[in-house]
């Protein structure tokens, strides 16, 4: 049940879902408190997040900086649009590689499922081309799939 799903929707959306064995309050906190974010939002093994700025209020800034300790580094910036504790977050983000990628509008929902949480990330990219490029260049938190899934995309 905790398995992640990822799918494309329409021309410009990417949808990620994941179950967590914790209530929405905890999952929401883990997405908005820097001390918690730094523990998990790290990508591949060997990377850490020395800088984590997360101002969880409308208009608040987001800045994550990652490093692998071997000269590899990149960062993400963003702004919060709307927060409904502990059920929904809307924010805009972009990667700097080092040139900024087009804005990714992200709606994150935390839906209660008994003592558990169903998290749904709905990303909206400016156009289909951008979504395709995003898949190619890393999709800040990684992406999809077996050949079967690739066929689904096609």
């Amino acid at each position: 049940m905790s398995k992640m799903t990822l799918k494309t929707e329409g021309d410009t959306h990417l949808i990620v879902t994941r179950h967590f064995a914790a209530p929405p309050e905890a999952v929401y906190r883990a997405h908005t408190e820097p001390e918690l974010i730094k523990k998990w939002l790290l990508g591949p093994e060997g990377w850490s997040m020395p800088v984590c700025i997360n101002e969880a209020r409308p208009g608040g800034k987001i800045r994550y900086e990652w490093t692998n300790g071997k000269g590899g580094e990149f960062h993400l910036t963003g702004e919060y649009v709307e927060l409904n504790p502990y059920s929904r977050i809307v924010h805009v983000e972009r990667m700097h590689l080092p040139d900024p990628t087009p804005d990714n509008h992200v709606e994150t929902r935390f839906d209660r499922d008994g003592e558990r949480t169903i998290m749904t990330l709905r990303m909206t990219l400016p156009d289909e081309q951008t979504r395709a490029t995003m898949l190619a260049t890393g999709m800040e938190r990684g992406m999809e799939a077996s050949y079967r899934r690739l066929e689904e995309m096609i």
Binding site: S2, M4, L6, V16, R18, F20, A21, A22, A26, V27, R29, A30, L36, K39, W40, L41, L42, G43, P44, E45, L135, A136, G138, M139, R141, G142, M143, E144, A145, S146, R149, L150
Partner: peptide
């Protein structure tokens, strides 16, 4: 490439599972 990215994303959420366990 996609499988690798997916693995990275899954790793994030596996770590988040641990963080949530700590909160609980």
């Amino acid at each position: 490439w996609l499988a690798m990215l997916r693995t990275a994303l899954e790793k994030n959420y596996d770590r988040l599972d641990e963080v949530l366990l700590g909160i609980n």
